[in-house]
Amino acid sequence: MGRMYDPAHPGEILKEDVLPGLGLTVTEAAAQLGVSRVALSRVINGRAAISPELAIRLAQWLGGNAESWLQMQLRHDLWNAERNSSANVTPVKRSKAA
């Protein structure tokens, strides 16, 4: 299976699918999650990443597992890093074993 093209930030999933599906505002969701409205808003608007702590809270709140939220974040971050990387790295040359 190939890598997803421009994977969504997990905050976008929360903003577009989860909160409307639950009929919740950011303020209500933040209160239920035990985080500040500002912190959740930053994630929802793609200005902050899903932390391991928030991933645990989301899994407890919605069901499922924390790893799935972290994997979404990782896919999003890696896809963007690969497209924005200006690294010019020379692969290591291994010496021949004696």
Rank of each mutant, 00 (worst) to 15 (best):
N65E: 11
S95L: 13
G11C: 02
W61T: 07
L74I: 11
R57A: 14
V18R: 09
D17N: 04
P20N: 05
L54F: 09
W79G: 05
H76M: 14
S95F: 12
D77C: 10
D17I: 05
R57I: 08
G11P: 04
G34T: 01
A39Q: 10
S36W: 06
E67V: 09
P7I: 05
E53Q: 12
I56F: 12
V26A: 10
A87W: 10
D6Y: 14
P20E: 01
L24F: 07
G34I: 04
K93E: 12
M72V: 11
R42I: 00
L74A: 15
R94W: 11
G2P: 15
A48M: 03
G63I: 06
M4S: 08
G11L: 02
M1W: 07
N65W: 08
G23V: 02
A48W: 00
V92P: 04
I13C: 02
A39W: 05
W61C: 09
S68Q: 15
V35N: 01
R37N: 10
V92T: 05
D17Q: 07
Q60P: 04
E28P: 09
A98Y: 12
A81V: 07
W79C: 14
N65H: 13
A81S: 12
E82M: 15
R42P: 00
L22H: 03
P10M: 01
S41V: 00
R47Y: 02
G46P: 00
A81D: 08
I56Q: 08
V18Y: 09
R3Q: 09
R42W: 04
G11R: 02
A55Y: 04
A49D: 10
G64K: 13
N80G: 14
L19T: 03
E53L: 13
P20H: 04
P7S: 05
A98D: 14
P91E: 05
W79I: 05
D6E: 13
W69K: 04
G64M: 08
L70G: 05
V43Q: 01
E12I: 00
H9P: 06
A98V: 12
L14R: 02
G2T: 05
N80S: 11
N45Q: 08
G64F: 12
E53A: 13
R94A: 10
A59S: 14
D6I: 05
Y5F: 13
I50K: 03
I50D: 00
Q60I: 11
L54D: 00
A48K: 00
E12M: 05
R37T: 07
V35I: 08
D77I: 06
L24M: 14
G63R: 10
L24D: 00
